[in-house]
Deep mutational scan, measured.
Amino acid sequence: KLCLVCSDEASGCHYGVLTCGSCKVFFKRAVEGQHNYLCAGRNDCIIDKIRRKNCPACRYRKCLQAGMNLEARKTK
């Protein structure tokens, strides 16, 4: 099974979405830290295992598009 954000090996369902541990922690920190990420490109950066750290804005956008939600952990 692959992470729906970066296509690395998924470690489980986190915040409602099948993700790897790295994307799970990234999403939690992004939401709780209330980061205002900005993409230096055109908001279409490739997010994969190798390049997932290059653009936090696009990675966060991809987390949201996949359906990640901090509240999902509280309902399970």
Score class of each variant (00 low, 15 high):
C45Y: 02
E9I: 10
Y37M: 13
G41I: 06
L2K: 15
L18V: 12
I47M: 05
L38Q: 11
L38W: 06
C13N: 07
N43C: 04
A10F: 03
H14R: 05
C20H: 00
R42M: 10
A30R: 03
G41S: 10
E71Q: 09
V17C: 15
Q34E: 09
L18Q: 07
P56D: 15
K53R: 11
A72Q: 13
C39A: 02
K76N: 14
I50M: 15
G41T: 09
A30N: 04
R51Y: 05
C6V: 00
C45P: 00
Q34A: 11
L2D: 09
F26V: 01
K62T: 09
R61S: 12
T75M: 12
V17A: 12
K76T: 15
R29A: 11
L4P: 06
P56C: 15
F27S: 02
L38E: 13
F26P: 00
K24W: 10
A40M: 08
A40H: 04
Y15R: 05
T19G: 03
R51L: 10
D8V: 04
C58N: 02
R61A: 15
C20M: 02
R42I: 08
C58Q: 01
R61E: 14
F27E: 00
V5Q: 00
I50Y: 05
F26G: 00
C6L: 00
G16P: 04
L64M: 11
A57R: 05
C3E: 01
D48E: 07
R52S: 06
K49N: 08
C20F: 01
L70D: 10
H35T: 10
G41D: 09
N54V: 10
D8Y: 03
C63T: 00
Y60A: 03
N36P: 09
Y60E: 03
C55A: 00
M68F: 07
M68I: 03
L18A: 15
Y15W: 13
K53Y: 10
K49M: 11
Y37V: 06
A57T: 02
K24I: 04
N43W: 08
L64H: 07
A10Y: 04
N36M: 13
E71S: 11
C3R: 01
C13L: 12
L2E: 15
Q34H: 05
E32H: 08
A72H: 09
T75Y: 09
L70E: 11
A40D: 05
Y60Q: 08
Q65W: 08
A30Q: 04
A40V: 13
G41V: 09
R52P: 04
N54T: 12
V31W: 08
C20W: 01
I50D: 10
K74V: 12
C55Q: 01
E32A: 05
M68A: 03
R51W: 07
R29T: 10
C6Q: 01
V25L: 14
V17P: 04
C6A: 00
V31Q: 11
C20L: 00
C58V: 00
L70V: 14
N54D: 11
I47N: 05
C3P: 01
G33A: 08
R29D: 13
F27I: 04
Q65M: 08
R42A: 13
V25A: 14
M68E: 03
Y60W: 10
A57Q: 04
K53V: 10
A66W: 04
C13F: 12
R52E: 10
H14V: 03
H35R: 09
R73L: 09
R52A: 09
A72Y: 13
R42G: 13
A72G: 11
Y37T: 07
H35C: 06
L2F: 15
F27L: 03
K76L: 12
C39N: 02
E32M: 09
R73C: 11
C39I: 00
G12M: 08
L38D: 15
L64Y: 05
G16N: 12
D48C: 03
C63P: 01
I50E: 10
C63W: 00
V17S: 05
G67L: 02
H35V: 10
G67S: 03
K62V: 06
E71K: 07
P56W: 06
I47S: 04
H35N: 15
D48Y: 05
L38V: 15
R73T: 14
K53M: 12
I47Y: 06
C45M: 00
D8N: 05
C20N: 01
Y15T: 09
G41K: 13
Q34G: 14
K76W: 05
A57D: 05
K1Y: 06
Q34T: 08
K28A: 08
A40N: 10
D44N: 07
G21L: 10
F27G: 00
Q34N: 15
A40S: 07
L64G: 04
T75H: 10
C63A: 04
H14S: 07
R52F: 06
A40W: 07
G16Q: 04
H14D: 11
K74N: 12
G12L: 05
G12K: 07
L70Q: 11
K76Y: 04
R52C: 15
K1R: 05
K53D: 15
G21Q: 15
V5F: 00
S11T: 15
R52Q: 05
A10M: 04
C45V: 02
V17G: 05
I46K: 15
R73S: 12
K1M: 14
A72K: 15
H35A: 13
Y60P: 01
A66S: 08
T19R: 00
V5Y: 02
L38I: 09
L4V: 09
L70C: 10
